[in-house]
């Protein structure tokens, strides 16, 4: 019970009249790696964006590391400091160098001294093998390099959970591998990860559980081996046949 780091109970969300999440229940334990897949429009991005309150849910409860997500802003900021997110469009800050991108939050949110923040940042950048580009600006790097920098930036806040929203979908094929390698390394290091992706190879290698979503509902949730070997629902079978 107490090692559940994310608890989602009966979560419902509407965009205007359109219901995008229907009665979603999900529990995530620490160090678990979960992959979420499904057709576009199924609500998978919305699901993880609710976890760090980039989207608001209208019904149900979401508890992250013991804190419930409500309109209380102080709470939200506390939760966001523990949850890191990597975006499909990277969203690095173009006016700051890679190093400054990484040290921004530690300095201004955790009030770290600049030297300490820079050491921390360089360590994270080394982990994703991009330390030599630290002084460069995002506009000077390739897509794969930018995404790895984005991962390092999120890691600099020492999050307990890392959320990935289709991290490789905007990359050219030859750069997908370098980003996936960085994510695999992170997973093997014990990080709790929820990854929305179509990269099933990654899921097979690293995920503990795979979730299939369609039309706002969790259709199937199984341990990885079971998911690929014996998908229970017809919709899952159809989806897998299309992407594998």
């Amino acid at each position: 019970m107490s090692d559940k780091i994310i608890e989602m109970k009966s979560v419902n969300k509407w965009f205007g009249d359109f219901q995008v999440l229907k009665d979603v229940n999900l529990d995530v334990k620490q160090t678990q790696k979960i992959v979420v897949c499904g057709p576009s429009g199924s609500g998978k991005s919305t699901l993880i964006r609710c976890i760090n309150r980039l989207e608001e849910h209208q019904k149900g409860t979401i508890i992250v590391d013991g804190n419930e997500l409500t309109e209380d802003t102080k709470n939200i900021e506390k939760i966001r400091a523990e949850v890191g997110m990597v975006f499909q469009q990277f969203n690095l800050f173009p006016h700051l160098s890679i190093l400054d991108n990484c040290t921004l939050a530690p300095i201004w949110v955790k009030k770290m001294p600049k030297k300490e923040a820079e050491e921390l940042a360089m360590k994270q950048l080394e982990q994703v093998q991009i330390a030599d580009q630290a002084k460069k600006f995002p506009g000077q790097l390739s897509g794969g390099q930018q995404q790895r920098s984005a991962i390092a930036r999120a890691l600099c806040m020492k999050p307990k959970i890392m959320l990935f929203d289709e991290p490789t979908s905007a990359l050219d094929p030859e750069m997908i591998k370098e980003v996936l390698d960085a994510m695999v390394k992170l997973a093997k290091g014990g990080m709790t990860m929820i990854v929305v992706t179509h990269e099933m190879g990654f899921a097979k290698e690293v995920a503990d559980e795979v979730i299939f979503m369609d039309e706002g509902m969790i259709v199937e949730k199984q341990p990885t081996k079971e998911f690929f070997a014996n998908p229970k629902s017809d919709r899952t079978k159809l989806f897998l046949s299309q992407i594998l």
């Binding site: 400091a81 997110m85 800050f93 939050a105």
Partner: peptide, 15 residues
């Protein structure tokens, strides 16, 4: 300024 910039900044905990 794209929405993603503000979201990324929010997601690393900035007020």
């Amino acid at each position: 300024i794209s929405k993603g910039q503000k979201e990324a900044a929010a997601s690393i905990g900035l007020t």
